[in-house]
Design a protein around this nucleic acid. Structure first.
Lengths: 243, 243
DNA sequence: TATACTTTAAATGTCAGACATCCGTACATC
DNA sequence: GATGTACGGATGTCTGACATTTAAAGTATA
């Protein structure tokens, strides 16, 4: 019997975390403010105190709130520190969060085979079938990034990319029910722009580009995909919150 | 009345988190293993299930464990993913962890005044006194990075840098009792090497360098210092674990 | 034998209420 | 003014129960 009506299938503590975060971000609670007591807050959100505390524990670990026994729970003073690269988020979502309107150009989707480099990164045999997705990201009609993705065909086939595909492989994979990307490891480097990259990105050949090479893993630690992302540093910047 | 004997003054959930982490790291529980049920684990650690759950929630958020309702709690399979830039750690410590032996060259420590750029970054008035630390980092006698730090004199005066200073401002600040750096925000970018940088780092002028610009904050969110770090990407690479 | 459905046990998720401990304030005391 | 003390309210912790989900065992069916 279903006792509680749920639109969202995720656990309550995760939903509560997001609802609280939203309240903080939208300014209902300002930095430095004291939140209502756990008792009141739990009542307000319609959940038990135990569940609320799990949500608060997450927000505390993320540095969004500070708790002091006997005193209260406060919104962390430095909310200006928006999370950055350390949160797994697509380039498009990252850009959107910074207020940039993006457009995808020159999208190409192909079935390819893993070369030695990719095979090693994805821990599969050479020649394994991959779905390759390449495109340029524009902001206000100016190229800011060139993205290349390779995903094991078992997780994503070229034909699966329908019109719900907005240009982000990560977002698309995450929308698939049943499994989800757990984490990624991104290597950060800087490279000079090759002739073809320079042309795609509208910069001088040899100018410095930011290179992000990223392997995506699922919950069991199995590699699912690999991305190579080139950014024009003057037009797209990253930050990382370090703790 | 003290009902429970505590050696450690920190909350139980924090202690439990650390004890569990230790068990994982020391190999009592191996990657992929299922942990005992929450019932058993709580009993084993001598705490209640509610408290244990707060500890587990933290470990889950950190990616150390994976929980599946109806199934169990597992040690995350990919413990091999060493943490990267998202952990606040000095360049020297980072290098050491990757097995590189570093040497500091051309160390210069000066008392300077904040220019407009630094004043804005550190949220102080223009002309405020700063301690400036500059040096080149070598690995096997090859330059890999050029680091510049500016710290508010109130937190670090030029004369305070004694012989316990190993080249890392962050490590030094952290050794000071009474307060500690809480977190930092690092901006990541790529720039062409200027003539003087190229000379210091032994690369061709105009070659692509990785630039990390980082503001250090204390627990109350007050800026304490700013760093500008240039890296030769072929000789020093970063990665970020994204969740 | 192979397949589909049902049952069941065990794990995490959630709830409710109670008591413990800590902290800031107000007030009394010196 | 400094110091001690009582009090209210907040987070920290415990207990025991029920809800929901999952994997696997068991059963019926083709």
């Amino acid at each position: 019997m279903t006792r509680y009506l749920r639109l969202d299938r995720r656990p309550l503590y995760a939903q509560a975390r997001d609802r609280l975060l939203k309240l903080i971000q939208e300014g209902s609670f300002r930095p430095g403010d004291r939140l209502p007591s756990e008792f009141q807050l739990a009542e307000q959100l319609g959940i038990s105190r135990a569940t609320l505390r799990e949500a608060l524990r997450l927000l505390e670990d993320e540095g969004r709130i500070v708790r002091r026994q006997g005193v209260g729970t406060f919104v962390a003073p430095n909310q200006h520190l928006e999370s950055g690269l350390e949160r797994l988020e697509s380039v498009l979502a990252l850009a959107a969060r910074q207020g940039m309107e993006t457009r995808v150009q020159g999208l190409s989707i192909d079935a390819v085979e893993a070369d030695r480099w990719l095979a090693e990164r994805l821990q599969v045999d050479r020649g394994s079938p991959l779905t390759q997705v390449r495109r340029t990201i524009l902001v206000e009609e100016t190229p800011v990034a060139y993205l290349e993705d390779w995903v094991l065909t078992g997780w994503l086939s070229p034909s699966a990319l329908d019109d719900t595909f907005n240009g982000s492989v990560l977002d698309f994979l995450r929308r698939q029910p049943g499994f989800h990307i757990q984490e990624a490891v991104a290597d950060i480097s800087a490279v000079p722009a090759s002739r073809s990259l320079a042309q795609r990105l509208g910069v001088r050949p040899g100018s410095a580009l930011l290179l992000l090479e990223e392997t995506l893993f699922n919950a069991s630690g199995t590699p699912i995909g690999f991305s190579r992302n080139y950014f024009v540093p003057e037009r797209f910047r990253f930050h990382v919150v370090r703790r």
